[in-house]
Design a protein around this nucleic acid. Structure first.
Lengths: 226, 226
DNA sequence: GGGCAACTTGGACATTTGACCCACTGAGGG
DNA sequence: CCCTCAGTGGGTCAAATGTCCAAGTTGCCC
């Protein structure tokens, strides 16, 4: 076994752990399984990580960081906003079907975070990252086809993430590509409905746009929990 | 310890197991933890269930059956369709906030099913149940305010489940009631958009309805996996 | 070249956990 | 009254698992 820096070894262990979790789930990611996947002696594990829990924690952080990098390339060019959104959803979906185990792993890690109070902040961070990413995509996508959003992008971003989560879960359950496609059609319609050409004033009613969506944000809602 | 029928004992163990899972997660539902929760000797467990895995399997079935019963009472009366849908979402959401651990437990059990090939059929059954339930709600809800659905209810039902899943996940992560409310507003708009007054022909364009939603189901989609 | 810090590793240990076993109890039918 | 059988008790086993230590080894700085 070659001599490695702690940082390098740490990274290799994390990557091995992710592979194991994709294959066998979070439960399967025992210290022994991970070091076997990484081709290391068991003792190397605790040289780098204080405990298995600490490793999982670092893994989640590591994944979140990686997540933010990727996925900005899903934007197609040209067309109308509905088409852009639909294409973005499609390319996300193809990622899911190509690597379903990866998505499962992310969900499991998410629920793992929720279960462990000391990690629950990571669950929030994970979703904040998703929401920011979605908002960024909406903004650049909107600019690309010269529309603006009629409601705060944060709200729309949340809707987008809601769709991707829901679509992914249902597909993981029944692997029904066609049904997922239909849901994505509707999702694209829904998002596109809140776009308006850039020059247009907010409640513009001229072109082929629809009647104004019901004002949003006035729903009865309880207090926001800290 | 009173003498019980096998069926009764089975049920008590399953309920205890669910309580344990809500509290400590699927991992925490060891045979010993479950029988402790149920106030039974360990031997009773293996008297009723062949193995822990068999118990988990039965538990999932048990929960799915219970799920189908409940939740039909979430329909409010009167108003427009958008209001009915919104109110239904709200009452679902209040269920989630009241018992977040229950939802977490359901998700974890779902992912547990996905991980174990011999249980993966249960994952599909679980979502089929959700989709049927949602379709039934849409149908009765639609009748109540005298509208029909312009696209197959199966598709809309899937969208509804997509929303509830996504909303639940995001809320579990950040506990943001207000954001969830906004997403529900949009969800209600989205669903309501595919409703039309009962007398009206399909592509009716008279009242304050919007332009026709983009035809759905023509999206590019790959083959449907068995 | 010596020394020191960083790194590596082969075991070992305590716990937890699923599963099982076998003798025992008691209620109810014959 | 006896006998069957559901249910109990408590102990045992083997496997899996997280954690740790103390003895090695390597490379680099003085």
């Amino acid at each position: 076994m070659p001599r490695l820096s702690s940082a390098q070894r740490r990274k290799e262990i994390l990557q091995a752990a992710l592979r194991v979790i994709q294959r066998d789930g979070v439960q399967g990611a025992t210290t022994r399984a991970v070091v076997a996947e990484a081709n290391m002696p068991l003792a190397s594990f605790h040289y780098v990580f204080r405990s298995r829990d600490a490793m999982i924690r670092d893994l989640i952080v590591y994944i979140i960081e990686g997540e933010e990098h990727a996925a900005t390339a899903t934007l197609s060019e040209g067309g109308d906003i509905r088409g852009v959104v639909r294409a973005g959803l499609q390319s996300y979906f193809e990622l899911v079907t190509a690597e379903p185990n990866r998505e499962q792993a992310l969900f499991e890690l998410f629920h793992y975070s929720l279960r462990h109070p000391e990690l629950s902040s990571l669950a929030r961070i994970q979703y904040d990252a998703y929401h920011h990413l979605a908002a960024a995509l909406l903004i650049t996508g909107g600019k690309q086809v010269r529309v603006h959003w009629q409601i705060p992008v944060e709200a729309l971003a949340r809707v987008l993430v809601t769709f991707t989560d829901g679509i992914t879960l249902a597909w993981l359950a029944d692997r029904d590509d066609r049904a997922a496609g239909i849901t994505m059609d509707i999702a694209a319609d829904t998002i596109a409905r809140y776009a308006a050409p850039l020059g247009e004033k907010t409640p513009g009613e001229n072109t082929r746009r629809t009647t104004n969506p019901t004002p949003v944000g006035l729903g009865r809602s309880k207090e926001n929990v800290a």
